[in-house]
Structure formats: structure tokens, C-alpha cells
Amino acid sequence: MDFSLVVAIELLREVAGLILIATGLAVIFGMMRVINIAHGEFMMLGGYTVVLTTKLGVNIWVAILILAPLAVGLFGIIVERLIIRHLYGRIIDSLLATWGLSLFLIGFVTVVFGNTVEGVSTPFSGLAIGQYTVAIYTLFLIFAAMAFIASVYLTLRYTKAGLIARATMQNPDMVECLGVNSKIVYMATFGIGAAFAGLAGGLLAPISGVVPGMGALLIGKAFITVVTGGAAVVAGTLSAAGILGTISQAVTFASGPVFGDATLLFVALILLRLLPQGITGRIFTRSV
């Protein structure tokens, strides 16, 4: 009983991890069909924001929940103004440019902070379940992931901004005709996506520590989750994270984390072979 509870929490943790790292990417992809290859580095910047500000004495919750998304969100808007806005409609070029940005950021952070792991201490202790211990922070991450996805859903579904965003996804020209400046919509979307990445990076910093190359370890999963999910932000991320997270964590239990990752990719390839537009390209097509 205790063991199955721990296993369930571990499964949920993997799914939650995928949701955390993929949501920001999914927001940008769903809106503009751009995969931000620098997404991993945005998370890295979020992590560094937390490490630096806590070293300066800022409360860790303020650092994670406010400063990290704020800093990275602002950075995202600057990036959008300087680079991405020139490349709308040129999907491949925007991928290449964000890749360039990714390399630049890794190099830049390596120069400034050095290629070493920096850490912050985990805010909670462990929780005993029978003879096992689960970190309360894990439970907090699962909760955070649910809050992530719920906030995106509620915003898209029930607010004016969400309505405009969904309309821009469907038909940007018509939205322009109705008097909305789609450039501002795109800029805001990119900023929000970046803020989500920063928040995810901040949340993960206490677990894994931060290092300039950490993006490369995270983005593979994030990309594959978003691509498998398809264009619908909430339904896509949830379904893909659910399927891929469960399977990969099951394999991880059986034979180690690396094979879990490999299996995740393999399952995603098969899903994409069957549903080339992602899960929400065929199923749940009317969802957000």
C-alpha cells in the first residue's frame, strides 16, 4: 500500500515535471507555431535568477514565484522585439534564430558564472509514508503543475485576453480586421511563454541545481511533449504529458532514467507516426 502510493506519487511527479517544462513552450507554439529552441535556456535563466537573488537574501518563495518569471518574461519580450518579430511566417528561420539565441545564452552564462553547478536548498523537508520518504517539495511541484495548467485554461477560456488569444490562433487576419493589434498579442504571448519557462526553471532549481548547460537536459522532453500534444495548449500538454510521463516513469522504475527518456522518445515517435499533427490534431480538436 505504502509502496503503491509512493509509485503513484513518482508517476505524478514525472507527469507534473513534463507539464512544468512544456507549458511555456506550448503557449508559444500553439499561438505562433514557433518552437522556441532557447526554451531550455530561458529555464536556466529562471534558475539562475533564483540562485542569485536568494544569495542576496531574498526570500526563496519571492524569488521562485515572482522574480524568476518576471525577469525571464521581460527578457522574453526583449527577445521578441529584437529577433522573433522579424521572423513571423518564417517558421524554420525562427527555429534557427532561437537556436542561435540558445547557444549565445549558454556561452554568455558560462562566461559570467562559470561552468559549475550552483544550488539552493530545498524549502521543505521530507514526508514519511510508512517506511518510505517523499519530499514535500515533490508534492508542491505536482500542485504547481496543476496550477500552471489550470491558470492557462481559465485565462484562455474565460477572460477577454484569452478570447483574443484564441481568436488570433485561429485567424490572425480576421482579428486584425476587428481592430486588435496582433503584433502586441504575439509579443505578450512570447513574454508569457518565457515567464512560464522562468517559473519552471525557478521551481526546478532547488531540485537539480543550476548549470549553464542544464537546458539541453530538459528541452528534449519539453519539445517532444509539445509536438506530441499538438496545437491545443491545455488539452495537448495534458494528454501528451500524461501518456509520455506515465510510460517513461514506468520504464524508469524497471531499468533506469536514461532508458525512460529513450522510451519516451520512442513512444512519441510512434504517436507522431499515427497522429502526425499531434494528439490534438485528431482527437480533442475543439479544445483549447
Binding site: R33, V34, I224, V258, D261, L272, L274, P276
Partner: peptide, 26 residues
């Protein structure tokens, strides 16, 4: 998997990128 699934631009780029990442990890 990629061509018979008719994956295009973004999807193709992401899948090839991730395959390389996984090989690196493995």
C-alpha cells in the same frame, strides 16, 4: 517514422534534434 508520418518543418526539426539529444544521453 518521420516521412511516412508526413512530419514537416517544425516537427521534423524537433524530432531530429531530440533523437540526437537522447543518443547523447544514452
Amino acid at each position: 517514422f518521420m516521412f511516412y508520418g508526413r512530419l514537416n518543418d517544425v516537427y521534423l526539426g524537433v524530432v531530429t534534434l531530440v533523437v540526437t539529444l537522447i543518443l547523447w544521453k544514452l
